[in-house]
């Protein structure tokens, strides 16, 4: 009798836990589904060729997001061009050169700290340092440099992780043939960590696309149509910042949802390509 009572309590516990787990998974999944469907339903009808290919004009009252698209592309390119050498280089230093354990710990701790700092603080310091102290004014370049600091830990981490998967025997083999350190690194080690670098790039692109708080005070709000050189040196609005401005300050929800749908599609593409890259390299590793 005693036994069956306990087993009843146990059974109740098990079924409650199971139900709670199912509920949680259902909540998570339906949230994702709802967000995607809602944004698409509200946004895609508002996407038109005119919206994508024109700049906004107060005269005609038309709204176009071409400048914002271009600004986003510029800032992604500029950020990656600057952050890649720094991040990959730092990762190489940590895994290939550094012998002082303390220094390694300090650098790794610094990177961890950077990844925890909220973007609004990056925006603030970026404004103080790049825009004011270095006198870049509010410009895409100042925004890109701020994003460089934000994305540095990501590139460092993914590169470092993949450097660690390059077998030590490759390095020994190359050293054993009398290759110098730099030659070993650029002929044998770096080709082995391409996957980490690409993964880092994809993650960073995602983060740059989604970033807004750090760009508000560094890159600005302008919608001017520029080439990349002029674009970087002048104030410019990226897609996310444009979404914020259209929604919060101008009440143009149709445009905001159109941008949200575009961002959502880009997010989907980024996730998909990250998965494909991982699959591709895993396959190649196993050959």
């Amino acid at each position: 009798m005693q036994n069956s009572k306990i087993s009843k309590a146990r059974k109740a516990y098990i079924s409650i836990m199971k139900a709670l787990m199912w509920l949680s998974v259902a909540v998570t999944c339906s949230l994702v589904a709802f967000l995607i469907i809602y944004v698409f339903v509200k946004g895609i009808p508002n996407i038109s060729w005119g919206l994508l290919s024109e700049k906004p004009s107060y005269l005609s009252g038309k709204i176009g997001i071409l400048p914002d698209i271009l600004n986003t592309v510029y800032i992604v390119i500029a950020t990656l061009l600057i952050v890649l050498p720094i991040g990959v280089g730092a990762a190489i230093y940590l895994t290939e050169y550094a012998q002082n354990k303390k220094l390694v710990n300090i650098i790794e701790y610094a990177a961890e700290t950077l990844s925890g700092i909220p973007s609004i603080i990056y925006g603030l310091v970026g404004m103080l340092f790049f825009c004011q102290f270095l006198n870049m004014k509010t410009s895409l370049l100042a925004g890109a440099l701020t994003l460089v600091i934000m994305n540095l830990p990501t590139i460092m981490r993914t590169t470092q992780e993949s450097l660690k998967t390059v077998p030590q025997s490759y390095r020994e083999g190359a050293f054993g043939l009398g290759a110098g350190k730099w030659r070993v690194i650029h002929t044998v080690v770096l080709p082995g960590c391409v996957d980490g670098i690409i993964t880092g790039c994809i993650l960073s692109v995602g983060r740059i696309l989604g970033e807004s708080a750090a760009l508000l005070f560094t890159a600005g709000f302008a919608h001017a149509l520029n080439g990349i050189i002029d674009g970087l040196s002048s104030s410019g609005c990226t897609l996310t910042v444009a979404l914020y401005v259209y929604a919060k300050e101008q009440g143009e929800f149709g445009i905001a949802f159109a941008i949200a749908a575009i961002l959502m599609i880009l997010t989907l593409i980024i996730n998909l390509s990250a998965m494909l890259v991982e699959k591709y390299f895993r396959k190649r590793r196993n050959v």
């Binding site: 998570t28 999944c29 949230l31 509200k42 905001a256 949200a260 961002l263 997010t267 996730n271």
Partner: peptide, 24 residues
């Protein structure tokens, strides 16, 4: 599949959350 959905959730820009929050 759920892992992919969760990564997607992580990748959605915060302004999109804000926008949907504002209107829903």
């Amino acid at each position: 599949a759920v892992g992919t959905a969760v990564s997607l959730l992580a990748g959605i820009p915060s302004v999109v959350y804000g926008l949907v929050g504002m209107l829903v």
